[in-house]
Nucleic acid binder design. Structure first.
Length: 350
DNA sequence: CCTCACACCTGGGTGC
DNA sequence: TGCACCCAGGTGTGAG
């Protein structure tokens, strides 16, 4: 499931199931899904079996499950706090976390990937490319099926490296609402916890997403001013801003009344701010509705669909009246894909 | 360095 | 029914 809201739905569904769970077995049905893994499938399996996950982290459309360091003494899984009540695990505060994860299972869903949680023995989902059987101290035995029609998605084991800005690598769950009994201004302004400042190698070049508190707005606006390209190209460039795909690009541009090929350098700072606000709004709204799904290809870890497709104003609405002005929405071929917009509300300006 | 076209893939829907 | 053709939510690479 491609864009940020859909990947976040998967991350949130996966987190409670995988956190603290140990990999019992791995079956690779299609090696093409390991395209990004640096090594043969035997290596992928060997590096995963017996390991346990510490959390589920996401930046933009990339998802990763950090692996607890291999203990030379014992394979015993440590008790960990429930995921819904914390950020990613900390590597330094408690003695139990004396060693930070140094590698992670990196998942990208591509155009059609799904991660589905199933009971053991359940019939395999169609197009399952990789099956990972987990043993969870809370949920018992679980299957994590990676299904992918077009095989643009992938799984890989990768090293984790420190983030450039020293901020958390990505989003790993809700911050706990922990109000200090005696609230001092200094304490209140400081986040109660921080995720590890680590990121998989292949994700390091991806910009933070606009829902990340550490997203660098100034750098984003500066990059827009400097670029010589259309605004939609820029929104889809994951090294500038991550998490946006074709649907939410079209939706945010419609909301901000900007033509997809408007040159980035011509946008005023105020217009760029409006656009960023609309991007955040549309992503957050879709997240609240469980993501966008048109068919069974886009589902959460239980196979259920989201509802955001009912809220689309431009994407896929060609021929229908613009919800703002009533004139028909148009679809044009752009970047080898469809661009949906209202020619009246979203005009090219020089 | 920046920008852009293209390759990588399968399966569902549509129209003849 | 069969079949050609079009469509699909993404990313990495390499040419210019």
């Amino acid at each position: 499931m491609p864009e940020l809201p859909e990947v976040e739905v998967v991350r949130a569904g996966l987190a409670p199931a995988v956190t603290g769970a140990t990999v019992a077995s791995v079956t690779v049905f299609d090696e093409r899904s390991l395209r990004r893994h640096p090594g043969p499938s035997e290596d992928f399996v060997a590096r995963l079996v017996g390991r346990s996950f510490t959390s589920a982290v996401r930046r933009g459309k990339f998802l990763w499950l950090p692996l607890a360091p291999v203990s030379s003494k014992t394979q015993e899984t440590r008790p960990e706090p429930h995921d819904s009540a914390r950020f990613a695990p900390e590597a330094h505060r408690s003695p139990a976390f004396s060693a930070a994860p140094s590698e992670a299972l990196v998942v990208h869903l591509g155009m059609s990937g799904q991660v589905l949680l199933r009971e053991p023995g359940a019939p395999d989902d169609a197009l399952t490319r990789i099956r990972i059987e987990l043993s969870s101290p809370v949920h018992g035995i679980l299957r994590m099926n990676f299904a992918d029609q077009r095989v643009f998605g992938s799984m890989a084991i990768e090293d984790l490296t420190p983030t450039r800005d020293g901020q958390p690598g990505g989003y790993a769950g809700q911050l706990p609402v922990v109000e200090p009994v005696e609230t001092s201004p200094a304490l209140a302004s400081r986040p109660p916890r921080s995720a590890p400042a680590l990121i998989p190698r292949s994700v390091a070049h991806i910009a933070r997403d606009p829902l990340d508190p550490a997203f660098d707005e100034r750098a984003f606006f500066a990059a827009l001013a400097k670029r010589r390209t259309g605004i939609k190209r820029a929104l889809l460039d994951q090294s500038l801003i991550s998490g946006i795909g074709n649907i939410y690009a079209d939706e945010a541009l419609w909301a901000a009344r900007i033509h997809y090929d408007q040159q980035t350098g011509t946008l005023s700072r105020a217009t760029a701010r409006t656009l960023l606000a609309e991007v955040r709004h549309v992503l957050a709204k879709a997240l609240g509705e469980g993501g966008t799904s048109f068919d069974a290809q886009y589902v959460n870890v239980n196979g259920a669909s989201g509802y955001f497709s009912h809220s689309l104003n431009a994407y896929g609405q060609q021929g229908k009246p613009c919800p703002r002005c009533g004139r028909p929405i148009v679809r044009e071929q752009f970047m080898n894909r469809g661009s949906h917009f209202c020619p009246h509300c979203q005009r090219l300006r020089r």
